[in-house]
Design a protein around this nucleic acid. Sequence first.
DNA 1: TTGTTGACCTCTT
DNA 2: CAAGAGGCCAACA
Length: 131
Amino acid sequence: MKTVKMKKKPERKPPTVKGPAAEHGFFNDVWEVVRLIPKGRVTSYGAIANYLGTKMSARMVGWAMNASFQATPKVPAHRVVNRNGMLSGKMHFATPTLMQELLAKEKITVKDDIIQEFDRLFWDPAIELGF
DNA sequence: TTGTTGACCTCTT
DNA sequence: CAAGAGGCCAACA
């Protein structure tokens, strides 16, 4: 057996969006930026964190994404990937293939869980919105 | 209450 | 060039 990434990890329940984080707006802010992503475009966690201010915590962006499933309206988390353009969070979707399917509908080419031409489809909020 | 983990990124050795 | 460690905020046990 190869070192297959078993998605049988302890499914941690979604963050308590109804908690203090919801009032702070950190999560809400991330979702808003993600929702502003044009169709057919993709961005990275670091880009969002950078737009929020600095790379103070790209990790939090990932947590916000996890909560994005119960965010309203639904957040296109499939348009958010890591710096490598790899669908790192695809395993967290309802189905491992859902993310790729959604990207396919966006006319985005995904090969081996990697977004092709990620550099061309990259959408930086710090530039598109901040400038 | 503290400790550990997490859809990450950047710097240093 | 490649590998390792650190750092940040929040939630869960």
